[in-house]
Amino acid sequence: MYLPTLLSFKNKKVAIFGCGNVGKRRAKKLLNAGAEVHIYSKDFDERLLNYGNVKFFKIDLSKVGEEELKNIIKNYDFIVTAVNEEINKKISEIAIKLNKFVNSSTEELNFIIPACVVKEDIIFSIYTGGKSPILAREIRKMVEKYIDKGEIEFIGAFRKFLKDKVKDSKKRREILEKLFTNERFQEELLRLIEKWEDDNNTEG
Score class of each variant (00 low, 15 high):
N99A: 08
P4K: 04
Y127A: 14
L49W: 07
P114V: 10
F124Q: 03
K74D: 10
N75E: 15
R137N: 13
R172I: 13
E36T: 13
K63A: 14
I94E: 02
G156Y: 08
E46D: 10
K170I: 13
E36L: 14
V102P: 02
A115K: 04
L135N: 10
T5Q: 07
I59E: 04
F9G: 08
E203K: 09
F124L: 06
E108M: 05
N53R: 14
N84Q: 07
L192T: 07
E183P: 08
N32A: 10
I16Y: 04
K90L: 06
K171R: 14
I134K: 11
V117C: 10
R172A: 08
I134S: 11
M142G: 04
I79W: 00
E68K: 02
D148M: 09
K100E: 04
G65E: 13
D43G: 08
W196T: 06
V143G: 01
K42E: 11
R159N: 11
L179W: 09
F78C: 02
K70G: 10
L7H: 12
Q186P: 03
L30D: 01
A15Q: 00
L3F: 15
F158K: 11
S62F: 10
E188V: 08
S104Y: 05
N99R: 05
G130K: 07
L48T: 04
K74L: 09
L109I: 10
F44P: 00
K165N: 13
K160V: 06
L176P: 09
E153S: 15
F158L: 10
K12S: 07
G52H: 07
V117R: 01
N84V: 10
K28L: 06
F17P: 01
A95M: 02
F180K: 11
N201R: 12
C19M: 03
T128I: 07
E86M: 05
D168P: 05
R140P: 01
C116H: 14
E174K: 15
L189Q: 06
L189E: 05
K141Q: 09
T181S: 14
H38M: 08
V64D: 07
I126A: 10
I16V: 15
R140Q: 13
V22F: 04
D60Q: 04
V54E: 02
N50D: 12
L49G: 04
Y40P: 00
V118R: 03
N88M: 03
K145R: 15
N110Y: 00
G20P: 05
A115S: 15
Y127V: 06
K74N: 13
K131Y: 13
F44H: 00
L49Q: 09
K70F: 03
L31E: 00
R140D: 12
R172Y: 14
G129H: 10
N103P: 06
S92Y: 00
G204Q: 12
K141G: 03
S62K: 13
P133L: 09
S8D: 15
L162D: 08
L179Q: 12
E203C: 05
S132A: 11
N84S: 13
N84L: 06
R25P: 00
I147W: 12
E187Y: 09
K10Y: 07
K97V: 04
T181E: 15
K170W: 08
L190W: 08
L179H: 11
F124N: 03
R137E: 14
K171V: 15
I134M: 12
T202K: 15
S125I: 03
V102S: 01
E108R: 00
K145M: 10
R47V: 08
V64P: 02
A136K: 02
F17E: 01
G18E: 01
F101E: 05
N21G: 12
N84T: 07
N11F: 09
I94T: 00
